[in-house]
């Protein structure tokens, strides 16, 4: 292959709870001509520790990240939050370096590095998109995910009201301030349901786990599907409603 050598940083939550998302990233990037590796020494970016105040525990994880991902052209993560942690926080914890500087969130990588918005996807569903806070404000991915979604054949994209409001996840915030988190979630779910969408997509499985957990609890019938899975879906190999 002649494409760029890309390391997939799956993130701990996707690796463990949402392996289908990581497989989707792999399928998508290979379809677009990348040579993808998954370095098995990777674990977690340290965001939970850092954001909760355990900076000393986050530091060695940032150091390990720099070592594990040093030898690639690019590192791609299906998460705005984890990519944000690496790019914005790791330098202060463990210094910067090639791994940090070459880390991209998936939609950034597709649009900015590979220069594509039409990835050849097919996804015949009514879909709404939630811009997760860290991809929106920490990374500034802007409307890259929307540009990608607009090019998906069969996909009916509906605008999410008050899209830029946080869903209330916030990592350990969802536990420490569970009631406030739930109040925020309730409004997010109302907005999602107002769209009449079948599928809510986003670039972060953590936020989708939160919103999806609420939508599932209330038996709304709305599915949460990571952006990578939407983009990986084709007519030949369509997304199948996996267990979520």
């Amino acid at each position: 292959m002649t494409g760029p050598r890309v390391a997939l940083f799956a993130t701990c939550i996707t690796d463990t709870v949402y392996p289908e998302t990581a497989k989707a990233v792999l399928r998508l990037l290979e379809r677009l001509g990348c040579e993808v590796d998954f370095p098995l020494a990777q674990t977690c970016c340290g965001q939970m520790h850092f954001n909760t105040g355990y900076h000393d525990h986050a530091r060695p994880l940032a150091q390990a990240y720099a070592e594990v991902f040093a030898g690639y052209d690019y590192v791609v993560a299906p998460s705005g939050s984890c990519a944000g942690m690496v790019r914005e926080i790791h330098p202060g914890l463990a210094g910067t370096g090639p791994a940090v500087e070459r880390t991209y969130e998936l939609s950034e990588f597709l649009v900015d590095v590979l220069g594509v918005t039409d990835v050849g996807a097919y996804f015949p569903h009514r879909v709404t998109y939630h811009p997760t806070c860290h991809s929106l404000r920490m990374l500034g991915v802007g409307d890259r995910p929307l540009a990608l979604l607009r090019a998906v054949r069969g996909l009916e994209l509906v605008e999410l009201p008050q899209a830029e409001q946080c869903c209330g996840f916030g990592g350990t915030f969802a536990l420490k301030n569970a009631e406030t988190s739930t109040a925020m979630l309730a409004d997010k779910m109302r907005c999602v349901q107002d769209t009449g969408a079948q599928v809510l997509t986003a670039g972060d499985n953590s936020c989708l786990m939160h919103i999806g957990g609420g939508l599932s609890r209330l038996r709304t019938g709305v599915r949460t599907v990571h952006l990578a899975e939407v983009l990986a879906s084709t007519e030949e190999e369509p997304w199948a409603a996996a267990t979520r």
Binding site: Y18, P19, L175, R217
Partner: peptide, 25 residues
């Protein structure tokens, strides 16, 4: 504190890394 208002997905039998090792390792 989570499940008071939200379901949580079960952790699947095979992680991505286990799948990778089986298929690509």
């Amino acid at each position: 504190k989570w499940t008071s208002s939200r379901d949580v997905p079960a952790v699947p039998k095979e992680s991505f890394r286990a799948w990778w090792r089986r298929n690509r390792g």
